[in-house]
Write a protein that binds this DNA or RNA. Structure first.
Length: 271
DNA sequence: ATGGTCGGCAACCGA
């Protein structure tokens, strides 16, 4: 069976519900993972998604900030929410697809929104950066994020780190900019290695090639100089590595009317 | 070197 899955930091699901609908109607992913939904679960536009054919929805929202959601055409058996750094922030949700989803074998999906970390890349001076580093450390040591043997696990989300040189428009100029400082990049890659995850984008696109999924709002024209960063990621466990049949970054979405600063990233797996 | 723009929600915080 073919599974297509999109991750997208939507920066308010209520404000951009028409953009999400536009994306869904053209891309029709089986599963959509959203971050920064920015609303409590009672305010989530459930009906709109159900009308679009997505009957199965798992929510972890909070008022005004953060918030993650998994929106699926296929039924899942269980939902789990984890907290990190002893904060109640809505930054994680996972689901497990079992027999009802009709894949060959079960599949686990994690959706993350890693803290952005503020502006100052010094954990002593900036508690938000300290939080981000601790969050990444906890992702590394978190047992459920260590797929074993033939486990078919996927981890997606806005990880707010662009770990490789060509994940940013200028490695040199961003070395002291939060999202690309060496300590964050090391910690994200350490979490990836500890879980033996495969970074789908970098399995498909060589490290020598620039790849971005985010362009700042703080530019009069986001296309000038193409000053992007690759903050949104799709990781798969070893058992899924060879099932990837497609990978797409919908750069065009950054030019849509009242866009998110992130664009949808989609993987297709033959499962 | 600096500041630039968003969204939530009603003064700033977080990104």
């Amino acid at each position: 069976m073919r599974l297509s899955l999109t991750t997208w930091n939507i920066n308010s699901v209520r404000l951009r519900i028409d953009l999400v609908a536009k994306f869904i109607k053209s891309a029709r992913p089986d599963v959509l993972c959203l971050q920064e939904t920015k609303c409590i679960d009672d305010a989530f536009p459930l009906k709109r998604f159900k009308r679009l054919g997505y009957e199965h929805i798992a929510l972890n929202g909070q008022k005004g900030y953060h918030g993650v959601a998994i929106i699926s055409k296929l039924p899942f058996e269980t939902t789990d929410i984890r907290t990190f750094c002893d904060k109640i922030d809505s930054r994680h949700i996972s689901v497990a697809f079992g027999d009802k989803a009709q894949f060959a074998k079960p599949l686990v999906l994690h959706n993350f929104y890693v803290p952005a970390g503020g502006d100052v890349p010094d954990p002593e001076a900036n508690p938000k950066f300290d939080h981000k580093l601790k969050f990444l450390d906890e992702m590394k040591t978190c047992e459920p994020l260590h797929p074993r043997g033939e486990d078919r696990h996927i981890l997606v989300g806005d990880l707010n780190v662009a770990p490789h040189e060509n994940d940013v428009w200028s490695h040199k100029q961003l070395l002291k900019v939060v999202s690309h400082t060496p300590i964050e990049c090391e910690k994200l890659l350490a979490a990836q290695e500890r879980g033996q995850w495969f970074d789908v984008a970098r399995e498909r696109i060589p490290l020598s090639e620039k790849v971005y999924t985010w362009w700042s709002y703080r530019a009069a024209d986001w296309t000038v100089g193409d000053r992007g960063r690759r903050l949104d990621h799709i990781w798969v466990s070893r058992a899924l590595k060879n099932t990837v049949s497609d990978f797409q970054i919908l750069r065009d979405a950054r030019a849509w009317d009242r866009p998110s600063d992130h664009v949808p990233v989609t993987v297709t797996l033959e499962v």
